[in-house]
């Protein structure tokens, strides 16, 4: 089954002569249970695609289907329980004046879910945190702990699709590995579908089976993970990007 299907997604800003194309005819699809990467340089439109799927941007054209249904036709409550998102900056994605308990309980209250305390404790244990963290505030946590809380919050509604917007780029390298392993474990356990945005090819190589390379708001090539090792991409830009990344890794 196809979990995410993006067809001809375009965004134009401005009018007539000043019209500027931000995203142009983006097409890709992600199978259920698959982890799909989006890579590209800064400003190539990776996060913009994610925000369109997350319904945080509403001025796009084309069609986005989740599990066979257009996002605009889905009832919002059901949509929320299908897709959730983990943001890039763990310092900005948790409300500074809300305790972890409030942050985790809000979605449960909104969707009137049962066994709230049990679910909240379970969610924290699943991301490797002690349930005692419920009483803490974000400023009492480290970056890695905050990102774990953000993942717990995203998973508490039991979504089947998780959008990950560079979830580790704001973290320290050692913590990055921990969070990536956690994400990989959770995917295996819960059979989640990931759409993973990153500009770090090593991270994508570790996390994703397939990836799309983006440049200037267009998908230039969709390839499998194996291509990353050989560097034999068809598109010249994708080849250049992979080559640069490989050389960088060797240099380090």
């Amino acid at each position: 089954m196809t979990a995410i299907d993006v067809r001809n997604l375009s965004i134009d800003l401005g009018y007539s002569s000043a019209k500027k194309r931000i995203l142009g005819d983006v097409c890709f699809s992600v199978e259920a249970g698959e982890s799909f990467g989006l890579v590209g340089e800064s400003g190539s439109g990776k996060s913009t695609i994610l925000r369109c799927i997350a319904r945080l941007l509403n001025v796009w054209e084309g069609d986005i289907q989740l599990e066979g249904r257009s996002v605009n036709d889905m009832p919002f409550a059901e949509y929320c329980r299908t897709v959730q998102m983990v943001f890039q900056d763990p310092y900005g994605s948790l409300h500074p004046r809300q305790s972890i308990r409030t942050a985790l309980q809000e979605p449960l209250r909104i969707h009137r879910m049962d066994r709230q305390v049990e679910r909240m404790e379970r969610a924290l244990i699943d991301v490797g945190l002690d349930p005692a963290f419920l009483a803490r505030y974000p400023h009492e946590l480290s970056g890695g702990q905050r990102q774990r809380v953000a993942i717990a919050r995203a998973l508490i509604l039991e979504p089947r699709i998780l959008l990950l917007d560079e979830p580790t780029s704001a973290l320290d390298v050692s913590v990055q590995a921990e969070v990536l392993n956690l994400l990989a474990d959770l995917r295996a356990k819960r059979k989640l579908t990931y759409l993973f945005v990153s500009h770090d090819l090593a991270v994508i190589d570790h996390m994703c089976e397939r990836l799309a390379v983006m440049q200037h708001g267009r998908v230039v090539e969709v390839m499998s993970r194996d291509v990353l090792a050989t560097g034999e991409a068809n598109d010249p830009y994708a080849r250049e990007l992979i080559q640069a990344s490989l050389e960088y890794d060797h240099a380090v």
């Binding site: 997350a54 319904r55 945080l56 929320c80 897709v83 959730q84 890039q88 900005g92 409300h95 909104i110």
Partner: peptide
């Protein structure tokens, strides 16, 4: 981002404003 996160969790505008 925390407002976006709250919106994605299905919070109504009123709820986001108050909470």
């Amino acid at each position: 981002d925390y407002i976006s996160a709250s919106r994605m969790q299905g919070a109504s505008a009123l709820r986001i404003i108050i909470k």
